[in-house]
Design a protein around this nucleic acid. Structure first.
Lengths: 198, 198
DNA sequence: TCGGTGAAACGATACGGCCCGTTCCGGGGC
DNA sequence: GCCCCGGAACGGGCCGTATCGTTTCACCGA
């Protein structure tokens, strides 16, 4: 999977032109930001990048691979570390929603999820990516566990899954402007069920 | 009489042919079940139903509307009423996942969500449908509230949202075969944060 | 009661347009 | 010279609309 999709080093013999690749990724991002998923086609990206379609197909085997590359080129949302689990998770959701709203990332990720529903390559790529992110988010819970804020037997993966699910659904249903109070309430419902003390 | 008990779309003078409509909906369901979302096109449905494309376009303004009609024709998943909130929610998720796995519903709903990412009509239809379902699921929490099992100030909508989000993400990432134990744990994390006592 | 009539839905076909994924070509930088 | 590039073109599929001729069915006057 990471085979042809990476922006980093390539296998021996393949001499990808960095200028061209960047122009294509820039164009893909711009098209997605302006026309959304429905307007996102290989031809549109090629036109925008003043590149040839074969150049795109040479380096990205599918629309999904291109989308994933675009998404991974974005800056990552940082997970706060305030010393308090509730604040960490609320802050994370708030940062994530803002990031999705204010950059092309939201559209890119929505498109990737949609693409994954009809393309098995996209599904596999998304599954791998989601696993990595879940582990990442799970660290917040692990930190809280280390602080004694969360019971040690709690499954951090499931908690991260609940939080990520909540974020996904808001992205997919255009509710990225959710009240901060609502976010806090949702987070509180989840984590007050896992706290060590009561 | 038995005249067009369909989806309530008819206006005066419109004489939709029930046979034709049923054939189209049957064909749409079959195409989705066999070819999935990527193979689902109006032309494919028309071929399968031995109907003309204009007939489909006459009664369904978009692919999304057709998908929604197909989905709503399916049997609904019943929400258990065991007298215990945790069992109700776990049972609901289990029923829902089984329903999505074993019938065409899962594919239909996945397709509808994907379509909503690129079509505003689909997004609107989906939002309306989701609102209705959320209220429906919220009744489970309200029942628990009436039993004194849940604190009265709890926002049933947010809890229903968390549960629905969890279900959506499992559908969209092909994890409908999740362990029952994991489901129970997830449900427990959510609802033990809203219980009235302890 | 009964047959005529016309509106409306039907299946089929065709159209221009867009996009897919591939192939071929000529130009140009290392 | 090599090999990657951009451009053009291809066959194929689907979209959404227009336009055929046909069939169905509610209405209504004889």
């Amino acid at each position: 999977m990471g085979e042809a999709a990476g922006t980093g080093r390539r296998s021996i013999g393949a001499r990808r032109n960095p200028d061209s690749a960047d122009a294509i990724l820039d164009a893909a991002e711009a098209v997605l930001a302006e026309a959304g998923y429905s307007g996102f086609s290989i031809e549109a990206v090629a036109r925008r990048a003043r590149a040839g379609k074969p150049t795109i197909y040479r380096w990205w085997p599918s629309k999904a691979a291109l989308l994933l590359d675009v998404y991974q080129r974005q800056k990552r949302v940082d997970v706060p570390d305030t010393g308090n689990l509730e604040d960490d998770l609320v802050g994370f959701l708030k940062n994530l929603f803002a990031h999705w709203r204010l950059t092309a990332s939201g559209n890119v990720f929505r498109s990737l999820i949609a693409e994954a529903q009809s393309d098995s390559h996209a599904a596999a790529a998304l599954a791998g990516y989601a696993t990595g992110r879940r582990a990442h988010t799970g660290q917040v819970i692990e930190r809280a566990k280390a602080r004694g804020e969360v019971a040690p037997e709690v499954d951090a993966g499931i908690v991260a899954d609940l939080i990520a699910s909540y974020a996904w659904r808001h992205l997919l249903t255009n509710r990225l402007d959710e009240d901060k109070a609502t976010l806090r309430t949702a987070v509180r419902y989840v984590i007050s069920g896992i706290s060590a003390k009561r």
